[in-house]
Amino acid sequence: MAKYLAKRAAAFVVIIFFVSLGTFFLVHLLPGNPALTILGPNANAHNIALIDKQLGLNRPLWTQYFIWLGNVLHGNLGQSFVTRESVVSTIAHAFPIDLELVVISQIIAFAVAVPLALTAVRKPNGRFDRYSTAGTFAMLAMPPFIVAPVLVLLFAVNTHIFPGPASYVPLAQNFWSNIHTMILPALVLALGSIVIYYRLLRNDLISTLQEDFILMARSKGLSDRRILLRHALRPSSISLLASAGINIGSLIAGAFVVEYLLQLPGLGYALVNSINQDDYVTVQGIVLVVAVAVVLINFLVDFLFTIVDPRISRD
C-alpha cells in the first residue's frame, strides 16, 4: 500500500509539473504578442521593448518559466495590466462563490439521487425504476447552458420565485438573501450530478443485492429497509463518493456557465471578463488555480479511498 501511495504521489507531482508547464506555454507559445495586447493603440517599437523587458519576455523561455514558477510557488500570480489588481486577490474574492455553489449543488444532488436510487432498486425494472431511469437519462441532455436560461425564464422572468441575473448578495452581508440567490444556479449544477450519482448508485445497489451476504441477511429475517440501508448502501456508497470527486471538473465548467449567465462574481465570471479584456495574466492565474485544484481533489479522493477500501491498491 505504501508503494502504491508513493506511486500515486509521484504521478501527482508529474501531473502538476505538466499543468504548470502547459499553463505557462499557453501564453508564450500561442500566436499573439502580450505587449501588443497590453499597449493597444499605444504600441510602438519602443513601448513594446519596454513592456517586453518589464515582463521579462526578452529572456530565454526556460528562464522565464522558472522565474514564473518561483513566483507562483511564493504565492505570486502576477498583477493584471488591465485592472492593476493582483491576480491572487481577484481569485481570493471569487473562489468562495464557486465553493458555495458547488457545495449547495452537491447537497441537492445527493438529496435527490440517493432516495431515488434506493426506491428504484426495491423493484428493479419496475414502474418507478423505469420512470426515474428515463427521467435521469433525459438530464444527460441538459447541460447547464441549456437548463440555466430555461430555469431563469421560468423562475426569475415569468414568476419571481428566485432573483434574476446580477442580484448577488455576499454571504457576509445577508445570509438568507445569499442562499436565495444561490439556489437557482446550484439547481442547474445539481442536475448534471444527479444523473451520474443515480445511475451509479442504482447499478451498484442492484449488483450488491445479488451478493451472498445480502442473502444471508435476508435469511436472518431482516427487513427490506434494514438490508437496503445498513447492508447494501454502505459498500455501494464508496464508488458514489469517488465519482463525486471525479465529477468536480465538470462542476467547475458548469459553474462558469451559470456565473456568466447570472452575473455571479465567481471564478468563471472573472475568467470570461478577463478574456474579453485581453487580461492574459489573470486568465493564466485562474486557469492554473482551477487546473491544480481539480488535480488535487482527484488525488485526495484517490488517496482517501485507498485508505477506506484497501482492495483498490492491490489492482
Partner: peptide, 19 residues
C-alpha cells in the same frame, strides 16, 4: 493520464483565448 487530469473546458477556454 496526465492529459485527462486537465479539465477539458478550462484547457479549451485557455487555448481559444490566445488563438
Amino acid at each position: 493520464y496526465v492529459l485527462l487530469a486537465f479539465p477539458a473546458l478550462v484547457a479549451v477556454i485557455a487555448i481559444v483565448t490566445f488563438w
